[in-house]
Amino acid sequence: MILIHCPYCDDTRPELEFAYAGEAHIARPLDPSALSDADWERYLFIRANPKGRHNERWRHVHGCGRFFNAVRDTVTDKFELTYKAGEPRK
């Protein structure tokens, strides 16, 4: 069970308090109707799935309830850092 630092609580908590929420920095288009089918498909379905450094989202669901972003290495499972939702990609 990994430990995760919640950037809102500024505290490191057991994984059991968190839920994974997919790749980070995939913003919903402001006007989806303006997107081509191909662009909409890219937004909906296409994910980076990297081997290594991955920007991803977690939710401190059994804590402060906030979604936040993290950089985790998908090979070692180690977190590099976590940061608040809305902050630029790190």
Binding site: Y8, C64, G65
Partner: peptide, 16 residues
């Protein structure tokens, strides 16, 4: 501050 309590009020999150 998250985790602090006072007068029956407990701060659970940044806006909760």
């Amino acid at each position: 501050k998250i985790g602090e309590s006072a007068g029956g009020m407990l701060c659970l999150g940044p806006d909760e």
